[in-house]
Each structure stands twice: as structure tokens, then as C-alpha cells.
Nucleic acid binder design. Structure first.
Lengths: 130, 130
DNA sequence: GTAGTATTTGCATAATGACGCAATTATGCA
DNA sequence: TGCATAATTGCGTCATTATGCAAATACTAC
């Protein structure tokens, strides 16, 4: 993620500022979490529920085996999307609302920061950052 | 994405409001785009460059074959992440800054909207939405 | 037209990941 | 302790996808 276009020599200051912002936000583990349809369904289900849901409950949202759901959930917890918590025999998973929306907004900010500014409008010039 | 937890009967109004927001934003094609390390690298490279980059230039950012980069780029364009444009022999790809950050912020908003509010704080009660 | 450069596509291979089933672990209750 | 319920893990299978190479296409310049 730190390698840069050899053909885009950059203003060091611009490059540093931009590089820092976006590289740190592009956590592909986070996006892998959302990339699978089943996981997206699970996330949406738990998010809309607004509380910690057990694995069995969550499994009712979709048609796959409970073991598959369990694996998805622990993966989502590792990715920082869900917060796991034990209650008796049940394992409750809850969406980490704040952290999640924060991560998305931070990436959006980083992308905006890379967007073309006045000096970069000339199509043939590199904006600096590569 | 429209299926819901059977064990979480919802207040219809809450359910509708929340469901609408998050289901529409969970475009897994968009997140698939970011889920692969190579693609994430390419996106970061083009984003930081701040202009339309040719396939050959972009390929210098990473160690994979140009043909692979070409495939990734056309996939990213299909996903709405990049904007393709021809200039002579070269194909230029530019990040769709506005649309991209907008999509991320919308999802962040939808997630926040699902977050626990006062009435949902009781852990055993479903917030409504499933 | 031909030659040269940039990009895309076809195809085979390798890696990754999702899934179901069965066995195992973890916890609560009598 | 023994039993029941909930969740996780091991393992094999199948589908998807990332990759490289070679061939084909798109475009420019002469």
C-alpha cells in the first residue's frame, strides 16, 4: 500500500499528507467483511435489530447452516464490525455502530482529500501523491 | 437482504425506516471492489494521483501483470469506483471522488440510524427492525 | 496501407473462500 | 455428576476469483 507510481513524482508535502490519510483507511479486512452477500445480510440483520443477537437468532435471518453463520460472525468480530459478548450459553453479537460509521467516514474524508483541487485540474499533471 | 429475524418482531414504522436505509446502502459490489489487496492498492494509487492515470502507469504501482491490472480497472469502473476515459491509445482511469465518498457517508448514516437509541438500551429487547 | 504502442481478451492454473455435516467444546440446570 | 442446549471447529467439496502468458484488438504516426 506504500508503493507509488514511478511516473508520478510528487510534491513531498502533498504526497505525505495524502498518502497518510488514505492508506491507513483502506483496511481491506473491513471491506472483505461487507463483500460477501451472506455477511452483508447478517450485518444488516443485526444492525437493524439494534441489540446483541445470539448466533441462533441471527441464523434465522438466512438460509445457511448455523456453523457457517458462526464462522461469519467470528470473522466479522475479528474485522471490528461486531462486538462479541457471552451471556450464558448464548453468544451475543452486536454491531459496533460508532466505530463502523467512523471508519467509513474517515475513509470518505481521505478520499475527498485526494480529490482534484484547483491546481490539479490540468489533466496532464499529476496532482502529487504518487 | 429483505429477510428478517423471525424472533425479532418489529414496530412496523421503525422496521421500515431502518430497513430502507441500510439495505439500500449495502451494495456488496462496491465493497468487493475494496476487498482485494491489489485493487485497494490500485485505488489508493489512482486516488492519490488526483488525475486520470493510464493503465500502464497504474501497473507500475504494483507487481502484477498489466493484463491483471486492466481487468481490475474495468471491474472497478463497473463497480462505479473509477471513471474510464479514452485519450488516444491510452485508457485513463480516474477515481469518482464525489460518488465514492457519498456512498460511504450514506452507509455510515444508515448504520448510525440503526444505532441504539434510548428505548433500545434494554439488552433483552429488540429495537425493532428485524 | 505498415509499424509501433497501449490495452483488452482467451485460456489454463493456482489460491481463496463459502458451505454442509459431523464431532467437539462451553455453559446451564437438575 | 449427567443431560440438554448453544456455539465452535475439523474436514472435504464446490464455486469463485486472482494471476500470468499469449494472442487479439484499438489507436497513433508515418
Amino acid at each position: 500500500m506504500t508503493q507509488l507510481c514511478k511516473s508520478c513524482p510528487a510534491t513531498p508535502r502533498q504526497a505525505a499528507a495524502r498518502k497518510h490519510a488514505i492508506d491507513r483507511r483502506l483496511d481491506h479486512a473491513l471491506f472483505k467483511a461487507f463483500a460477501d452477500p451472506t455477511r452483508a445480510l447478517l450485518i444488516a440483520c443485526i444492525a437493524k435489530c439494534g441489540r446483541g443477537c445470539s448466533v441462533g437468532e441471527i441464523a434465522e435471518c438466512c438460509s445457511v447452516d448455523v456453523s457457517v453463520v458462526s464462522r461469519h460472525l467470528s470473522m466479522l468480530a475479528r474485522a471490528g464490525v461486531l462486538e462479541p459478548r457471552r451471556r450464558g450459553r448464548a453468544m451475543l453479537y452486536q454491531v459496533r455502530y460508532r466505530e463502523l460509521s467512523r471508519a467509513l467516514r474517515d475513509l470518505a474524508d481521505a478520499i475527498d482529500a485526494c480529490g482534484p483541487v484547483e491546481n490539479d485540474k490540468k489533466e496532464d499533471r499529476c496532482g502529487g501523491g504518487c
